[in-house]
Structure formats: C-alpha cells, structure tokens
Nucleic acid binder design. Structure first.
Length: 759
DNA sequence: GATCGGTATTTTTTT
DNA sequence: AATACCGATC
C-alpha cells in the first residue's frame, strides 16, 4: 500500500485501537484518510465483514468501496458501508424477529409520513383545520431524532401544539406498526432501541464490527450518536471524521455537540487535526477562512494551502436572476477552453434557483445536470406504481392501499373508503383484508363493493408471484392487470409520465442485473429489496458526474464534492442567509457554514454572484448583498458590476439588521442609503457584461428600498394604489401599513403582496 | 361519486 | 408559481 500522506494523515491511518477523532478541514483529504485506514485494517488481516463504515450518502459508500478495492487489490467483500439510514434498515430487516415489524416493511418518505399523520390525526380527534399535518409531522420527527417517546413527549407538553402533537404521536406510532411501516426517523430510532434493549443483539453487532468508522460526524443527530455509542460499547474502536465548520443539518436534528463532546463521551480519544488543504488556491482559501472566522460557535482553526494564490475570487453584482444566469453562462463559455464542462459546478441555496440557470444553459445549448429538485421517485406516477408494488410486498400497508385504490379511478371514493376504514376498525387487519370482504359489508352499494373485491383479488393473485417473478416482470404485470398503462395513455400529459414509468421498470431490471442489494444476509424477494433500496436513495446517489455537463445543485447537495470552477448564486440577504435565519445567531451561523461549504468546493476558480431584484414566490423582491459578503478580504477578490444591475455607488443599502448594533436603524425597516456604512469599492466594468435583451425594467431607478419608506406610493395587485404609512420588520417578515385610496388602511405582508411602485 | 374550478396557502435545505 | 384543499356542479 503506497500512498503519500502527510504526518497528520498518517497518524490517523495508523492509529491503533481505541476512539479516534479526526477534525478534518475542507479539502484536507479526510475521505482519503478514512479509506486508507480501512484498507490498512484489511491488509493487516481484518476481514472486511468486521468493518462498519457510515457515510453521508450511498454514493459516498460506493466511492469508498471502490477506492478500498483499488488500494488492497480486491473487493472488500462483506464490508458494511452505507448511510445511517440504509444500515439501520438492513439491521431491522435481518433482526425483524426481534421487532414488531416483518422484514417486508415499507419505508415511508416524508410525504407518505404526512399522509399517515393526517390519518393519525383523525384517529386522535385532532382538528385538521386548526393544526397542520406538516407541522405536527415536523414536531414528531424532532422528537424521534431526539429519541423522545410518545409518553415522554406527552408528559412534557404544555403549549397547545405540543399537546396535540402528544396525542397524535402515539396514534401515528400505532398506525405505522399496523401498516408494517417505518418512517425515515424510525429506521434510526428502532435500530437504536434494538441495540440498547437487546443485549444479545448489541453483542452480536458489537462483536461483529471490530471497527466503526463514521464520516461527516458533525451532521449526526442524537439517535445516530446513540447508535454509534451502542455499537462501539463492546470494543471502543470508533473513528469519526468531521468538521464543525461544515455542520449544515441542524434543522434536521444534527447536533454539533456530538462532535464537540466526542472526547468526553469516548474517554481516551486520540485527536488528529487535518488543517492542510489540498484543494483550493490561496485566494479561495483566504476568502473562505475570512467568512468562517466570523462564527463564534466553532473550534478555532485555520486551513492552509501550499497552492499558489491563483485567480481572485470574482464577486459580481447583477440585475436579476436572469442576468445572473446569463452572466454565469457567458463566463462558462469563456472558461470552456481550459475546463471541461464537467469541471464546473453551479451552487445555490434553494432548488427554485435552478430554473433561471437551466433556462440560460438551455438557451446556450450547454449540457447540464441538475442534482435534486423534483425527485424521480417522488413523481406522482412513479409513486403510484410503487404503491401497487409496495402493496404486493407488504399487504398491511394501508398507505399504499389508499394510494393504489384511488388511481386509476374505479368507482371507489371517499365515502366508500370511510366505510371500509370503519369495517376494518371493527374487524382488525388491513384495509386490503377489509376490501376482500367488501361484499359482506352492509350498506355498501354493489358497484364500489365489486370494485374493491376485484381489486383485492387481483392484488392477491399478483402477490403469489412475488417470490418467483422478477421485479420488472411484476411491475409490467401490475401495469397490465390494474390498467395503469392504459390509464396513463389516456391522460393528457401521459406520454412523459409513461416514459417515467418505463424508466422505473428499466431501473428495476438494471437493479436485478447488477445484483445490487444482493446481500447474503438479507434474503427476501427481489422486489422487496428493490423497494427498500429506492426509498433510501438520495438525490446525490443518482448523480453521475459527467465529463461534458455542468453540474447544478444546492449547497447542501454539494457537500463532499469539489469542482475546479464554482459559481455560487443568490448570495443575498434573505436567500443566503435564507429567510428569517438572520434573526438567531445559531441559524445565521449555520447559514454562514453553508456558504463556507460552497466556497470550499472550489479548486481553482470561484465566482460569487448577487442580484438586486429576484422573483420569489411569484413576485419581484428587492435584494441586497448578503452580509456574508462584508467579510471578504479585498485583496483576494475582484468585484464586477454589470451596467444593468447592482448598485452604482460603492455603498450597499440593505435592510436594517436590528440584531447587529452599530448600524443606523430606522423604525420603518430600511436603512437610508446615506446611513449605510459600507466601505467604497472600485467597481470594474465586467467584460462578460450581459447585453440588454427585451424590455428592461430598471429596478434601481424605480424601486430602491427607500421607495418603501413612509409616504411612498405603491400599487397592490388587489387593492390598487396606496400610500405607505409604515413598515415593520424586515425580510420575509416585513409588514407594511398602507393607506389604500379605495380600500382604506390595511396591513400587508410585503413578501406576499406583490407591491409595485406607482407609475 | 367524479370532476372542475375556485381559493387559500405556501417554500428552505434532505435521509 | 405551484399546489392543496374545498365546495359546487354534473
């Protein structure tokens, strides 16, 4: 094994038994350390099956397996490598007999879960008008990630929402158990329970895995921490790798304390710091370091690079998102001589931002790939087909039943389903069972009863084939038997949907051909394995970096990647940091880390853009440069100003941030331009400046933020013309009190009102 | 019981 | 802008 490693990396690779914490800065070669360490263990004779490697995506696990095999010269057969979720799912399948679910369980994604919550709310008599299923789902998810049981939750619930949640939570749990289903959070939760409550299971896995290695440890939540702790309790050989500066999943329950307290939780921990960056130029790193240095909650460190200073980081101010996208594409065209398109990444905060880029790229005939957005497996038609298949594998799955029975239309509507649910409540069993006996149900008209019985009969017949037929054949059979193909053909935009369904079937065939997911330990039908496989796929897992295509993705999805050329768009107050996150320090710092993650993806060239106006939620919003841009070291950046956008003076007006003292504040919500204490820059005319096209609405003239000051004349789409009386709050929360000429005084939410300046 | 059309509500980020 | 939900009509 010959790999060039620096002394710190070597220390991590050669560290023997006992806990190891690797604090690895961006681009410091942490994946390399992890794979080399595993390769070393294997070369020393440890069977791969005794290693557990947790990665953040399935893709990362795949890459890791590949690298290990090229290091040791053979496939690391039997190694457990995957995400927390897929590893837990696997464990729950194997150990199904120790749980109250069978190994054919369904995995509910967020939308399945929300539907189930709605049904649980009915069971718990929670008023659906008063409480949103979405909100309750989020609460329950938080509780599960923190490993709070329904009883514990209810006991601590005092405010009204918590009380309702406390009632829905147990009903939801019963419903999931009845459906033989787990939601995403359950996979972690129940796996931990299995390990913590069953000594024989814990000893089995603890003994089996001689080494546990976890990547991206800064993004683990409490349940994941407990899982690591339980597995490591037997041998203590746990190696975690992470960077507190790259923790970006706090909103999903990730707890920074896991990494900050690691040394305390695992006594005798050896710590290795990797601060040598091998990825980025000096300028890029200088900018990134300056940005992250502003965070208070972090372990002090400074990444260094031996690479040359390189090109300055370009900061460009553009007029709107179209100009931003056009500018980006122009730049890419210039860079194309030196860089393959596959070396270029465009990153942004929200998926909605991809649209402008896609339009511009398409217009320029430039190939691109978008990671994320509307996911393939979340498309309506794909989910519909999956529901049928799910029902074959797991007939207890009421969610799948409801989805399947509702499409295509077969004369079974809400009323019939209501009666069916009532019958089931009395008799027990699943909705599918109840449907099979629908003929005996009193008060049910013949039509619906017949439809239900025949549906159940078809499902039972197909179910008999599950153990013998291939997944793809079963899918085809489903499409035919239930008339799905015919229904899609009859739909107006059915062609595309049909194509997606065909792609799904092709995917099943490919899955079988690759033998993917075939694990000696996980028996079960091919269909069963396929379904569990796809429900845990992430966007990134389906992403194949292509030589000839630009990559577009959110900053979150870009974690762990690198590109020679990076563009980060929409670096504006309210978008990055997003929404109200500037209001609390924790949220603001997480947004800053997200920006930092984006900056550190770049190897050679980095571009940051912001605009002065952007369409959001249907209306044009004024935009100001992100406060994150305040900290950029002038000597490492190159400012560009397009003539059709940006701010002409070297001063940036922006909404007053009341949480930051020292800025001039006005009660009306906006800083006067003269009060903005920005330093002056020299703006350069940008060579790639975008020519005007089409009618241009010169925003900077007609609707500067000052226009929203008291006395400004505006036009509201519904209420017509009016005069601004006052403005309270800022960003998305800004509310304006406006005296309308015809309707009198009203308070409107600026973000939603779609106000225009009066002509 | 289905379908259509209106209105209300909504947007982070993802396993 | 896009979707979900609700109510009215067929």
């Amino acid at each position: 094994m010959r790999v060039a490693l620096n002394p710190e990396q070597q220390a991590a690779v050669w560290h023997g038994d006992g806990p190891l914490l690797v604090l690895a800065g961006a681009g410091s070669g942490k994946t390399r350390v992890l794979t080399t360490r595993i390769a070393r263990l294997i070369e020393e004779g440890l069977p791969p099956s005794r290693i557990l490697a947790v990665t953040f995506t399935n893709k990362a696990a795949e890459v890791m397996r590949h690298r290990i095999s090229s290091l040791v010269g053979h496939q690391p057969a039997g190694i457990w490598a995957g995400t927390f979720h897929s590893i837990c799912a696997r464990m729950l399948r194997i150990e199904a007999e120790h749980t109250d679910r069978s190994s054919a369980f369904t995995i509910y994604d967020e939308s399945d879960s929300e539907r189930a919550i709605k049904r649980a709310m009915e069971d718990a008599d929670a008023d659906p008008r008063r409480w949103s299923a979405r909100g309750i789902r989020a609460r329950i998810s938080d509780a599960k990630n923190a490993m709070v049981s329904p009883a514990e939750y209810a006991a601590a619930a005092f405010d009204p929402l918590s009380r309702v949640t406390g009632e829905v939570y147990p009903a939801y749990e019963r419903l999931l158990a009845r459906c033989n289903a787990y939601d995403f959070d359950d996979l972690l939760l129940y796996a931990v329970r299995l390990l913590e409550d069953r000594p024989e299971v814990r000893e089995h896995y603890g003994g089996r895995f001689a080494h546990v290695l976890v990547d991206e440890y800064q993004d683990t939540n409490h349940a994941q921490y407990r899982l690591v702790r339980a597995l490591a309790s037997v041998h203590g050989n746990v190696c975690v790798v992470g960077d507190d500066d790259q923790s970006i999943y706090g909103w999903r329950g990730a707890d920074l304390r896991n990494i900050l307290d690691f040394e305390r939780d695992f006594p005798g921990t050896a710590v290795v710091h990797l601060e040598q960056n091998y990825r980025s130029t000096g300028a890029i790193l200088q900018v990134a370091n300056a940005v992250i240095a502003r965070n208070r909650a972090r372990k002090e460190k400074k990444l260094r690079t031996e690479r040359p200073q390189g090109e300055s980081v370009v900061v460009a101010a553009l007029r709107d998102e179209r100009a931003e996208a056009a500018w980006t594409v122009r730049k890419i065209e210039q860079l194309r001589v030196r860089h393959a398109l596959g070396e270029i990444g465009i990153l942004y905060r929200t998926n909605a931002q991809s649209r402008a880029y896609e339009d511009a790229l398409r217009g320029a005939d430039m190939p691109y790939r978008v990671v994320g957005g509307i996911r393939f497996y979340e498309r309506r038609e794909v989910k519909d087909v999956l529901a049928y298949l799910q029902l074959l594998v797991n007939p207890s799955d009421d969610g799948a039943f409801l989805r399947a029975v509702g499409w295509p239309r077969r004369g079974v509507g809400a009323v019939t389903l209501e009666r069916l649910a009532a019958a089931r409540a009395a008799a027990g069993g699943s909705l599918l069972d109840a449907a099979a006996c629908a003929a005996e149900l009193e008060g049910l008209p013949v039509g619906p009863a017949r439809a239900l019985v025949s549906f159940a009969r078809d499902a039972a017949a197909l179910r008999d084939l599950v153990s013998v037929a291939s997944a793809a054949d079963l899918a085809e059979e489903c499409l035919r038997t239930f008339g799905l193909r015919a229904a899609l053909e009859a739909e107006e935009d059915g062609e595309e949907r049909l194509a997606n369904v065909d792609e799904l079937v092709a995917g099943m065939a490919a899955f079988a051909a690759e033998g993917a997911g075939i694990q000696a330990e996980t028996a079960g039908s091919e269909l069963e394995r396929f379904l569990q496989h796809v429900s845990l796929l992430s966007d990134v897992d389906q992403y194949d970096q292509e030589e000839g295509a630009v990559s577009l993705m959110t900053l979150h999805n870009a974690k762990g990647m690198e590109f020679p050329v990076v563009f980060i768009g929409g670096v504006e107050e309210g978008l990055l940091p997003l929404g109200r996150s500037a209001e609390t320090m924790e949220a603001l710092e997480e947004e800053r880390r997200l920006f930092y993650v984006g900056l550190t993806r770049a190897m050679d060239r980095l571009h940051v853009t912001h605009v002065s106006r952007r369409f959001r939620a249907g209306s044009a919003m004024p935009c100001f440069p992100s406060s994150f841009l305040d900290d950029l070291p002038e000597e490492a950046i190159d400012r560009r100003l397009s003539a059709v956008g940006g701010w002409r003076s070297g001063r940036w007006p922006r909404p007053v941030d009341s949480s930051r003292p020292g800025r001039g504040g006005r009660s009306d919500g906006f800083a006067a331009r003269s009060a903005a204490t920005r330093s002056s820059f020299t703006w350069r005319r940008d060579p790639a400046e975008v020519p005007e096209s089409g009618p241009v609405y010169d925003y900077s003239e007609s609707q500067e933020p000052l226009e929203l000051l008291t006395g400004a004349r505006i036009v509201h789409p519904r209420f017509g013309a009016g005069t601004v009386l006052s403005v309270v709050g800022d960003g998305r929360a800004a509310k304006a009190r406006i005296e309308f000429d015809l309707e009198g005084p009203k308070i409107v939410l600026v973000a939603h009102a779609g106000l225009r300046p009066a002509p």
